[in-house]
């Protein structure tokens, strides 16, 4: 039984490019600095290349607090400004329940069950995937 803490590694989250889509896989415990760094890295990558979508797979993330939640929401809003769409994929049930209990429902956030569903969502024409059928302000 390993009782040692895994020291969180400072630095960058790897960003993978799949055609027009950037794929980011978050794992384990992400510390604040790393999350902020990711937000910045993504903005730069999107601005420099012509990607149309970003998938952030958080199926390996055990907790999302208000800080990480805010980073995800801001990243999504920011990619939107750069004419790309962000989908957050694979949120665990316990994480979803906790966020809702915390009062964070992120109605603007695009979500998908897994990376595959997220890629399918991004492949659809832009208008078809508004989750609540309403326009963005």
């Amino acid at each position: 039984m390993s009782e040692h803490y895994a020291r969180p590694v400072a630095g960058h989250v790897p960003v993978l490019r799949l055609g027009d889509v950037l794929l980011v896989t978050l794992q384990g415990d992400l510390h604040d600095g790393m999350a902020s760094q990711l937000q910045q890295d993504l903005a730069e990558t999107i601005a420099a290349s012509r990607v149309t979508g970003v998938v952030i797979d958080i199926s390996g993330v055990e907790i999302v607090d208000s800080f990480l939640g805010r980073v995800l929401a801001e990243t999504a809003a920011q990619t939107e400004l750069l004419a790309a769409r962000t989908v957050v994929a694979g949120m665990r049930p316990a994480v979803a329940i906790t966020l809702v209990e915390l009062g964070l429902t992120f109605p603007e956030l695009r979500t998908a069950l897994n990376t595959e569903a997220a890629l399918a969502l991004l492949a659809q024409p832009v208008v078809a995937n508004r989750p609540d059928g309403e326009g963005r302000p």
């Binding site: 907790i63 208000s66 665990r92 049930p93 329940i97």
Partner: peptide, 17 residues
């Protein structure tokens, strides 16, 4: 249980911050 653990860890993260 898993859900309660997650709630506690999240609360701890908020309060520690």
């Amino acid at each position: 249980g898993l859900v309660d653990q997650t709630k506690l860890v999240t609360a701890a993260s908020e309060l520690a911050r």
